[in-house]
Amino acid sequence: MTLLDADDASARVAAIIVTYNSSATLPELLASLDTSTVEVRAIIVDNGSADDTLIVAGREPRALVIATGANLGYSGGINVGRTYVREGEHVAILNPDLTVEPEMLAGLLQVIDDDPTVGIAAPQLRGLDHEERFDSLRREPTVMRALGDSIFGNRWRGRPAWLAETLRADRDYERAHDVAWAGGAALLISAACDRAVGDWDSAMYFLYSEETDYARRARSQGFRVRYVPDAVARHEGSGSGQPAPLVALISVNRIRYFQRLHGPVRTGLFRIAVAVQHALRPHDPRHRYSLPVVLDRSRWARLPSGDPVPSTLSIRSSQNRNR
């Protein structure tokens, strides 16, 4: 058993798991952490689930369970979890619909231990069927990369790097290398990087692009983002089940991120490049919904956003059942 009691001070890794209606998948993640070859503490931050997530989480007596009573978004939940990370612990960010292979955390931890300039280590993400591979690695966004992804999507997977933000070639997932950023479903952040970068930006990013922003800030502090193919997590993913407002939010947050780094002219071109994705897919009602949202900034305020952080939280651990 390597899932330690939340009050155990000997863990090297604190795993922050932000849940939202995750009762169906959370048990498998916790069970997989219990087979990890690295000792880990589980910090479950529930974002106001309406299902039985808190009941399911409560069945694992070793976990620290924090009920926010509100939907703070992914970044907001991570930030709550960070307040319970102990000094010196590395921070694993794990989606509740993941399972981790026994050696995954050990593989990521070795990379961080071997080179202190690696601040973020990312595993290979594969489907639950063990066959599908998620294209989880990214380049820094540009206008042409956004346009290339909008036009071609998963077609012409071997197109040049200047036309693709997403890395899709098999060779990019077969070797360890540095990337600009990686999908936030599973990451290991070194204690030094976590301390230097600080909170995730929950004010700007309720959901999506938070990992893009965090990785950029980590790189600006001198840390590298390293992909580790031998470390594997299994991910269910949301696939085509995302509702239209969240599809629109993905695009809007990409534009918000780009705008922070570039002037109005380039940002305008980037927004058009992102809009092309939706304009070319009118058969999909989610894209029909998203296109006018992307083009009309006045609609952005109506997209999903986080609730205020409550003044009190319900916390349960082995020594603190409810305060």
Score class of each variant (00 low, 15 high):
Gly184Ser: 08
Ala169Met: 13
Ala122Tyr: 06
Ile44His: 11
Ser317Gln: 09
Ile120Ala: 06
Leu108Asp: 08
Tyr208Ile: 09
Ala42Ser: 03
Ser220Ile: 12
Pro245Tyr: 01
Ser150Glu: 02
Ser32Ala: 08
Leu246Ala: 12
His278Leu: 01
His235Arg: 08
Ala9Arg: 14
Arg155Asp: 12
Arg297Ile: 02
Arg266Gly: 12
Leu147Ala: 01
Ser298Phe: 01
Arg216Gln: 13
Glu211Gly: 12
Val80Ala: 09
Glu140Gln: 13
Leu30His: 10
Gln277Leu: 04
Asp170Met: 07
Glu101Asn: 07
Asp5Leu: 12
Trp162Glu: 13
Val80Lys: 06
Asn320Pro: 15
Leu207Asn: 14
Val85Ser: 07
Leu108Val: 06
Ala215Trp: 06
Ser150Met: 01
Pro264Asn: 07
Met204Ile: 15
Ala164His: 03
Arg159Asn: 04
Gly48Ala: 00
Asn95Met: 05
His90Glu: 04
Glu140Gly: 11
Asp129Gly: 02
Arg271Ser: 01
Ser190Trp: 03
Ser36Arg: 09
Glu131Arg: 14
Ala67Pro: 12
Glu210His: 08
Gly239Asn: 10
Thr68Trp: 03
Ala218Cys: 09
Ser75His: 08
Gly127His: 02
Ile16Asn: 12
Arg159Phe: 01
Thr212Tyr: 13
Arg145Trp: 01
Ile120Leu: 09
Trp200Asn: 11
Pro243Ala: 09
Val225Asn: 10
Ile66Val: 06
Ser150Tyr: 00
Val274Thr: 02
His262Lys: 03
Arg216Met: 15
Ala31His: 14
Gly153Cys: 04
Val80Thr: 04
Gly69Glu: 06
Ser290Tyr: 00
Pro61His: 00
Phe270Gln: 06
Ala218Pro: 09
Arg256Phe: 04
Leu108Phe: 04
Phe258Lys: 08
Ala248Leu: 05
Val56Cys: 00
His235Gly: 07
Val118Cys: 08
Ala273Arg: 00
Arg159Gly: 05
Trp181Glu: 15
Arg126Cys: 15
Arg260Asp: 08
Pro292Lys: 01
Thr99His: 03
